[in-house]
């Protein structure tokens, strides 16, 4: 009964707004009261949440296993770095160019889905991530190869420099909040519904006049656009980029963020991001276990709560362990009752 009351409390709109307000206030005050490390971790969460929200659109809403998201992130970062260091383009323009350029790459990568099934498209995203790395590591004249590109000047919108640590923090915060609102609005619209319809049953979606390939491409374009923005922010925030950030392993981590947070939930993506950014920081001394902890979480999650922390309960299987344990308990109770009768 207590659980139900708790659930009611959290599902109330006023409660949610209240909690959001607290979170918002906390994040606003945070840079003034915390140390550099915490500030850096929160800033990283902002950047990564753009990635995980974008990947949530592709994976959690349209149901495509995108294992090349880090490469899209890299495309955005490299566009920004090359434009800013090589051509002296101001950050605001490079920021936009990164978003649009990456979305175009996403469009090209997702076009094969006109002919291929969803699982084959995952292979193409993997292929893309390897092709991207091969190009970045070897196209010395443009990407400077394995050493990467240093000396990227900091975030600067329309001539206003955000060079102090607090200023950067608030820029990242603002971009993350705006992106959250935009992505939430898209996913709550008919476009988001069409994505979910395609994810759950392509044929059923087609019978409603939805063209699955279009929906898939659209979700790729949206997801990779935000990956591109994240790339631009990352490049200007760190000031240096190299190919080793944008590997397949990073893509896997981004996907894990979405899974932990819950398929089909944009707030979930943020929650997953917080976990996967904070977890490695807390067990820094035991770096070997980091991957394993991620693995164990994936396993336990899929077995006991496949919908993730905030995903819809419709993803929970009837045949899942949780259900079976419950059924066994019920059976035992019934047997007990029968014994007494």
């Amino acid at each position: 009964m207590k659980k139900a009351a708790l659930k009611d409390f959290f599902s109330k709109k006023s409660t949610r707004i209240f909690l959001l307000a607290i979170l918002f206030a906390g994040l606003t005050v945070a840079p003034f009261v915390t140390n550099t490390l915490t500030k850096r971790i929160i800033s990283t969460i902002f950047i990564y949440s753009l990635l995980s929200m974008g990947n949530m659109v592709i994976g959690g809403f349209t149901g495509m296993l995108n294992l090349g998201h880090a490469a899209f992130w890299g495309v955005g970062a490299y566009i920004t770095a090359i434009l800013m260091t090589g051509y002296n383009v101001p950050f605001s323009a490079a920021f936009l160019a990164a978003g649009i350029g990456t979305a175009l790459v996403g469009l090209v990568v997702s076009i094969p889905c006109l002919r291929l099934s969803t699982d084959f498209l995952s292979l193409i995203t993997i292929a893309f991530s390897y092709i991207f790395l091969a190009v970045v590591r070897n196209w010395m004249s443009v990407t400077k190869g394995p050493q990467g590109i240093p000396g990227i000047s900091c975030i600067n919108f329309f001539g206003v420099d955000f060079s102090s640590a607090n200023a950067v923090y608030f820029v990242l915060f603002a971009v993350a909040v705006v992106s959250f609102i935009v992505i939430s609005n898209i996913t709550k619209s008919k476009f988001g519904l069409a994505m979910q319809a395609v994810r759950d049953d392509e044929l059923g979606a087609r019978s409603a006049g939805i063209k699955p390939a279009q929906v898939k491409i659209l979700s790729f374009v949206i997801g990779t656009f935000f990956a591109g923005l994240a790339g631009a922010l990352y490049a200007a925030y760190i000031g240096y980029i190299g190919p080793n950030t944008f590997t397949f392993d990073t893509s896997t981590t981004i996907f894990q963020m979405c899974i932990l947070g819950g398929l089909g939930s944009i707030p979930g993506a943020v929650v997953g991001t917080v976990f996967f950014v904070v977890m490695p920081e807390t067990i820094r001394t035991l770096a070997v276990y980091r991957v394993g902890v991620g693995g164990v979480i994936m396993l336990l999650l899929m077995l006991f709560r496949p919908q993730g922390i905030m995903g819809s309960r419709a993803f929970a299987t009837k045949d899942g362990i949780q259900e079976r344990i419950k059924n066994k308990l019920i059976a035992r109770k019934v047997a007990n009752v029968q014994k007494h009768v």
Partner: peptide
Amino acid sequence: PVRDAFRLVPMISAL
């Protein structure tokens, strides 16, 4: 345990 679940679930548990 997750054989009949949503398509991505067994892939992720394997991961």
